[in-house]
């Protein structure tokens, strides 16, 4: 009975969506904000990658909140999963090939992650994408040797300081009399590594924060898994 009413509800919803779909006129409205940003971003922000200009410049506030959501999810996740009991059984270490592979991958992943973070204002990529790679760099060795523990103190210190420095850079602009999160240090030469003012610094903070947050979350989940 419940199934039937759910199916009917879905049918109605599908018809409703179909009706909206038919009435929509695709692609008729010009993206006014997007076009304005495309023509102004090179001059106003100085990042060759306009998506980065939006992520850290025009909508930097969203990005700050997004970092906060990750931080909150990690904090709440830590509270939910609780502390690991010291007597719990651990998974055995992986074989030699996986361990050696993990050791080999670690420096490569760190370098690639940092490269992607630091070139976020020039090429596709940036703090989020690079941060995920950094997180995997620290998580792959844990998969190879489940016995090793990630230092939660280090992780929480990095995530705290990286997040605080993002806000601090925003507050610096305020003390200079401008609005919160205004990009600092000029625009530089479009396309150069050292350009777009404070954006690369912000992306580095984002990358470190995302990396430490995700690595911490994954480590918590994997440690908790072993309790059963």
């Amino acid at each position: 009975m419940q199934r039937l009413s759910s199916a009917l509800f879905l049918l109605g919803l599908g018809l409703l969506i179909a009706a909206i779909f038919r009435g929509m006129e695709f692609g008729t409205v010009a993206p006014i904000v997007g076009q304005a940003i495309n023509s102004a971003a090179a001059e106003q922000v100085g990042a060759a990658n306009f998506v980065t200009a939006v992520v850290l410049g025009y909508r930097g506030f969203d990005t700050l909140l997004e970092l906060t959501i990750l931080f909150t999810a990690a904090t709440a996740g830590g509270m939910v999963l609780g502390k690991r009991s010291p007597t719990a059984k651990r998974d055995p270490d992986a074989g030699f090939i996986l361990q050696a592979g993990a050791d080999l991958l670690f420096p490569l992943l760190v370098i690639v992650g940092l490269y992607i973070i630091l070139h976020g204002h020039l090429t596709p990529g940036g703090g989020f994408q690079g941060g995920v790679i950094l997180a995997s760099a620290f998580f792959v060795p844990i998969l190879a040797r489940p016995g090793t523990r990630m230092s939660h103190t280090a992780v929480s210190t990095i995530e705290g300081l990286a997040g605080a420095s993002f806000i601090f850079i925003g507050l610096l602009a305020m003390f200079g009399g401008e609005a919160f999160l205004t990009p600092l240090m000029g625009q530089g030469e479009l396309g150069a590594l050292l350009s777009a003012g404070s954006l690369p610094v912000l992306y580095l903070a984002v990358g470190l924060k995302v990396g430490s947050e995700l690595a911490g979350l994954l480590a918590q989940l994997s440690e908790s898994e072993a309790v059963d």
């Binding site: 940003i37 306009f50 998506v51 997004e66 989020f128 995700l214 979350l217 989940l221």
Partner: peptide, 29 residues
């Protein structure tokens, strides 16, 4: 050029989704 705004928005929305997914799985555990 494509509109950069939705791309930035979706990047934000995906990261939010990942955070909530991780929390949901911890709770499920």
């Amino acid at each position: 050029m494509a509109d950069p705004v939705p791309q930035a928005l979706v990047l934000t929305a995906i990261v939010i989704g990942v955070g909530i997914l991780a929390l949901a799985l911890s709770l499920a555990l």
